[in-house]
Design a protein around this nucleic acid. Structure first.
Lengths: 321, 321
DNA sequence: ACTATAGCTGTAAACGTTAACATTGTATAA
DNA sequence: TTATACAATGTTAACGTTTACAGCTATAGT
């Protein structure tokens, strides 16, 4: 509650001198500065964020927009963002929900990192037009104030399909993702391209939405039309887990009757039995790169879009047929 | 970027009239208000958060402080907090890391919900002394500006031990939590009380830190001194999972040789085999209650401390012996 | 001794709001 | 007709900073 004014009064100097002293300006004598610092500490002075950002027109805070907090999924990602930001003197806040979008136009944050399905591209572009800097992790958006840091979905999906083929599978299902999802679209498109390269594939597509129940539903369908061992590429691990759950209640075995590969390498996959084969990428790096790109955008430095590479993690869920 | 001043100029009125109109004051003619609103919309006007909170001395934002984002643990909790806050016109931001603590004295937020092992109680009390309102979810702290919303650790731990006893176990291990953790201290204390009620218990305590490796290490120890089937109460699920992992690499079977019960009912427990017995509570409710209490604290309404009740979830990991 | 210069410190405007208070105009009552 | 009240709008100070600029003092150069 103590303000710069209180310090000035107690130190017998003007508020500007206090301000300079607190900001380490060389304009103030060491002696004066020391006295001011001491009084500031004594009064438990902390600068008022609102006043400072009103004047400086920046907050040194970056907002990360997430659809929801479910799943261990975001842990490493946020860690990566946070570390990269702190290194440059920025703070991170995590926001979720439509209402929090207002932080951008209200200038509560200096930039936004978006991984939020519910954040419409029109809205993002509106904010970009108003001069706000944004990094998107879940869509392609071309704008001078927007940078993309995306997963290499295409090569991931190709890796997955190639792995199934290598293991001798010819009957292949893909369980898709939600309608508007960029990741889902890219992955399914890559799958279609990949299977096209082989003449003898018996390829089927099942709808999905990236959640467990969709995986269960897909499993139900696959079981219903079961004739011979089949392989399934679930476009994310979550649905693969759902599929495990459903199959556990049937006589069909994962890695024997139904072979499954996922995408994301979420923590849970390590505890599935047999271990889920999946596509992995460094969440931490994905986050760090996004943060770095955003800061460059803010500093008006040139930045290129970037894609994060992915690798195949084999597992007992996909075996030779 | 358009400010109230731009609107005033274009509408040919004073800035105060604009302010009143935008805030829906009845002081302004409907006609004038309509004109002003129209111009505001046309100029894409959004109030500047810094200016507003500088003047109003409030931000309508609540900060939730978490140690880290690892684990699916916080998902429902945050959801609960967010819903409760939004209902009352507040926004939630999630903060992590020591630096973010400054949001409190800087008045960036109107209140704090703390579930952060690294946030020292001295620091919290200092902030409370400065008039800031805080709800703690991970410690007992008595202060007029601090409210506690805690888990009913004691009854949870008692439920766990009683369950093991009911199942006929007499050789019982407890794997403890980290040194300074409030939850850990409460739980282990309750365990000691509980086993004291039975004369014939062969009780052992093993150190732990709430992480998987600690569970593995404890499992190693238990296996080393294995003579007969034993039961283990891991003070959280995370360590129980670590124990599963270790035992999977041995000849000992969970639910047969080693019986395990955890605490928290994290999502992962549903995918362990056999299912992990554990202690459950509603994360969502825990979050919602915390948020409600904080808002009451802010409104200077009376609030009592609260404890969230817990229940036993049986599982194949604990069977009759 | 006088001026120029450098080094500190002070003055004041500005950032964008809100809200108390002042002013103006108009309708109502005496 | 004039005082009175009230409704609508305007003026202004304040919130707590930062920072351009002005002012002062002491030192150094002539």
């Amino acid at each position: 509650m103590a303000s710069i004014k209180d310090i000035a009064k107690q130190a017998g100097v003007s508020i500007s001198t206090v301000s300079y002293a607190l900001n380490g300006s060389s304009k103030v004598t060491e002696e004066t500065a020391a006295k001011i610092l001491a009084i500031a500490k004594e009064l438990n002075y902390v600068p008022n964020a609102a006043a400072r950002s009103l004047k400086k027109r920046e907050t040194k805070i970056i907002g990360v927009f997430l659809t929801n907090y479910g799943g261990a999924f975001y842990g490493q990602l946020l860690q990566g963002i946070q570390e990269a930001l702190n290194r440059k003197g920025y703070e991170m806040i995590v926001c979720s929900g439509k209402e929090s979008h207002r932080f951008i136009p209200e200038r509560m944050i200096d930039g936004a990192i978006v991984l939020d399905y519910f954040f419409s591209s029109e809205e993002l572009i509106k904010h970009a037009n108003a001069g706000h800097k944004i990094v998107v992790m879940d869509r392609e958006l071309t704008h001078s104030n927007i940078n993309q840091v995306l997963l290499h979905n295409t090569s991931g999906a190709t890796l997955a399909i190639d792995h199934l083929i290598e293991k001798g599978h010819r009957k292949i299902y893909a369980v898709s993702g939600p309608e508007g999802s960029y990741d889902a679209t890219q992955r399914i498109e890559a799958v279609r391209q990949a299977v096209k390269r082989y003449a003898d594939i018996d390829y089927h597509e099942l709808p999905g939405d990236f959640n467990k129940p969709a995986g269960e539903k897909a499993a139900e369908q696959i079981v219903k039309e079961f004739t011979e061992p089949a392989a399934v590429f679930c476009l994310n691990d979550e649905m693969a887990i759902g599929m495990y759950n459903y199959l556990a209640r049937t006589k069909y075995e994962v890695g024997k009757d139904i072979h499954i590969i996922g995408f994301d390498n979420i923590e849970l996959t390590q505890y599935t039995s047999p271990r889920l084969a999946t596509i992995d990428y460094s969440e931490r790096k994905w986050g760090a790169v996004s943060a770095e790109h955003l800061l460059k955008l803010i500093a008006n430095e040139p930045v290129e879009h970037e894609r994060i590479y992915v690798t195949l993690i084999p597992g007992g869920s996909v075996q030779n047929v």
